[in-house]
Amino acid sequence: MTTDLLDLPRRSERRRPDANWLLVLPAIVLVTAVLLVPLGQSLVRSVDPPSWTLEHYLSLFTDGVTLKVLGRTAVTAAIVTVCAFLIGYPYAYLMTRVGPRARSLLLVVVLVPFWTSVMARNFAWIVILQRGGPVNSFFEFLGIPGVVPYGNVSGVTIAMTQVLLPFMILPLFSTLGSIDRRLLLAARGLGSSPLAAFWKVFWPLSRGGVVAGMMLVFTLSLGFYVTPALLGSPQESLIAQLLGQRTTQLLDFAGAGALGILVLVTTLLLVAWANRFGGTVSAIGVVATTGSKGRS
């Protein structure tokens, strides 16, 4: 570091950073007015002043519906997470092995779900998975009739896994890419079988990326609304649908407030926890805007 003359006035500027806060202010006002105040209001509504009660939170656990739906949501999210891992790991592994040209092609393919319009994507899955659709016909051709992954959990899982795969593959790709492959060759050279070399050398080194990707996918899959509404069945609704239903159909704003706060707090806690495994969450934004792995 050279003590440049131009650097000197900087210290005096540091003492009065007001002008820079003025630049940040409009964004703070917008986000506060549009997001934070409504979220704060639903928190206030959930404790129902002036009676200040936790009744709406207690009834979430006693009404018999919410807990069941929460459990179903967690199970669905877990299935999606495992599927995304099983599909994403070999793909991310392949990405680290191929040449630069094939790698950028594979990377573009991973990012396709990001920019496939939400409604176009869900419409496409309805077409593919419905009764009489290509999947149904394919299995009938194989002599297995009645495979209709539409209007049930399997359809929701297929559609959710597809759109969440980037969040599994990108952290995995950055972890797997940083592993020194010569370690594998060394293990092979010392007489290990390919499978044992992978399991004992490569897999333990890749676990950080696996955990990061799985946390990310699990957290994000808790909030899905459109996909379960369009591809699932009303009898097997997930937590987001329950929240929407309480708001627009039952007009139970206090109950919806409590449920919304519960979902929000759960998500933020998971996010904060996931952040400790290598700061993957700010990576969502970075991934989404730059199409490359996050740096923070």
Partner: peptide, 12 residues
């Protein structure tokens, strides 16, 4: 970016 869209939607 990390808040589920449905939570924002209902509150808003």
């Amino acid at each position: 970016i990390v808040t589920p869209a449905i939570v924002i939607a209902v509150a808003v």
